[in-house]
Design a protein around this nucleic acid. Structure first.
Lengths: 202, 202
DNA sequence: TCTTGATTTGACCATCTGGTCAAACTCACG
DNA sequence: CGTGAGTTTGACCAGATGGTCAAATCAAGA
């Protein structure tokens, strides 16, 4: 592979195809359960060809995760201290729920990693995520002290939003086994909205 | 192994040791990520000896899951139509949260399975779980119609309880990366209690 | 104690899996 | 075109993994 040149047309196409395929396979089977052959087949490449673009299975996984982490945390990043408290939080919830609906594979990719102790993203959790959390919970705390929203444990407030929204992507099979044909998000959206409206009222 | 006789002392001990070891390993690495050698070592047996008690890796996993499913659904089973609505629900939440705290491995065992599409317990979800859900949501709906609790989508109400309680077991690493030394359940218990108190008020 | 069934194990096997490599092929550009 | 860099592949390898088996060891009742 070229040393440091700008990526060729083919490189761009194949790298993208590999990451897309890896997202499918890793999110469905976990790191250990996924095989390089499977990813290669799904990307329409031979295994050696895939390994021409990424040095190892681990490298693909890392590239995927770090590439997606930013997207994943973006909604929380957007929480604005200067906006209307209730509206900001509701917007955050709305974006998170939308992400569960539109990016369920990404959600399950992280879920797989987390359930198994996050061996490959432990650092990102303790650094990037922790920092972002501290920053945003400070905003929540300020709102609480100003009496703009109910006084609650700010960390658990965020946890609850994560839990409620990602549940629908991560445990999709279970939700659908119970709801049958009913669209999960049809009911989830108003339910969660009501929940936080009641919870956050000062 | 004996055909159908009562299990010997040794059989009892070893089967129990295997299931205990398998719970550790499967919950931490998922089905595919776990190895028979690892389970055998953790159970203090040689691999062939382990396979003398269970015919295959799959069989161990199945035995574990079906053996635990009952325990797992017990709290919901206990929800009593004749009790006080709010107290019944709060007691259910309390039991679920306690299970997350005391049986995190079991929670992650199911989480691993669910995130990956529940290939091995799909039937149990559509049958046992679905049946139990329908039965219990009927109770909730009745309570709502009697004006004893707020009118909400009963399925999503249960989902929310699952999501909020299991989050602490399943994504333990993430929670701890953020809370540091603080005991997650210390804050979670009152937070969740407050949440449902506000949510369910008619 | 002796015997018989239960238990344990070392050696082994087939398959899968991540990864390598040299050779072949393709493409873009002068 | 021709050429060199970029791309692709068949063949291959070492180690891991699930599982088998015959032989050895152990335990408990007659």
């Amino acid at each position: 592979m070229s040393k440091d040149r700008a990526p060729t047309r083919i490189q761009k196409k194949n790298r993208a195809a590999i990451l897309e395929a890896a997202l499918n396979v890793f999110s469905a089977y976990g790191f250990r359960g996924a095989t390089v052959d499977q990813i290669a087949a799904e990307a329409g490449l031979s295994k050696p060809n895939l390994l021409y673009y990424f040095p190892s299975k681990e490298a693909i996984h890392t590239a995927l995760l770090s590439g997606l982490l930013e997207i994943w945390l973006a909604p929380l990043h957007d929480l604005d201290a200067d906006g209307d408290p209730l509206e900001e939080i509701r917007a955050y919830i709305h974006r998170k729920l939308q992400m569960s609906r539109e990016l369920p594979r990404e959600s399950r990719l992280f879920a797989n990693e987390l359930v198994q102790g996050a061996p490959r993203i432990h650092d990102a959790l303790s650094n990037d995520l922790k920092t972002l959390m501290d920053e945003k919970t400070a905003i929540l705390t300020a709102w609480m002290e100003q009496g703009k929203i109910a006084r609650l444990h700010p960390y658990h407030l965020i946890f609850s939003i994560w839990a409620l929204t990602q549940h629908y992507a991560d445990f999709d099979v279970q939700v659908r086994a119970i709801l049958g044909d009913e669209d999960p998000y049809e009911g989830a959206e108003p339910f969660i909205d009501t929940l936080y409206r009641k919870l956050l009222a000062p």
